[in-house]
């Protein structure tokens, strides 16, 4: 019953996350937008789990574990970059330029 609206909300949140990634230059905020996208997907999983069984919830559990690990490592990387370049603005981080 709540499946359709949940998926709609999930879609909106995910798009907002993507737009946020495109919009921001601060690496930490971009990171937060990525978390937003992860949560939008989590919502889809939970909504579908209501109809297809609890496996969807298990997946969300794993996503959270991965998100936690990702946050730890990602923030550590940002920390290291900041120490190196005194900035977290991704426009100034372009070592991979061709």
């Amino acid at each position: 019953m709540l499946l359709g609206p949940s998926l709609a909300v999930s879609a909106i949140l995910f798009s907002l996350g993507v737009a946020g990634v495109l919009l921001r230059r601060n690496a930490i905020v971009i990171f937060m937008c990525v978390e937003l996208m992860l949560n939008a997907v989590n919502l889809s999983f939970i909504a579908l789990a209501q109809q297809l069984g609890p496996q969807g919830q298990v997946i969300v559990f794993f996503v959270m574990a991965v998100a936690a690990a990702e946050a730890a490592v990602g923030l550590a990387i940002i920390l290291a970059i900041y120490r190196h370049k005194q900035t977290v603005d991704i426009q100034n981080i372009n070592l991979l330029r061709g």
């Binding site: 359709g4 998926l7 999930s10 993507v18 495109l22 919009l23």
Partner: peptide, 29 residues
Amino acid sequence: DLRGWPGRLVAAALGLLLAAELWAVRTWA
């Protein structure tokens, strides 16, 4: 740290486009 107007427009356009595409599959059951 927000991008300038061109960047904002691109972000908005792509975000809306994505939302529209995802919206289309919202009713799938």
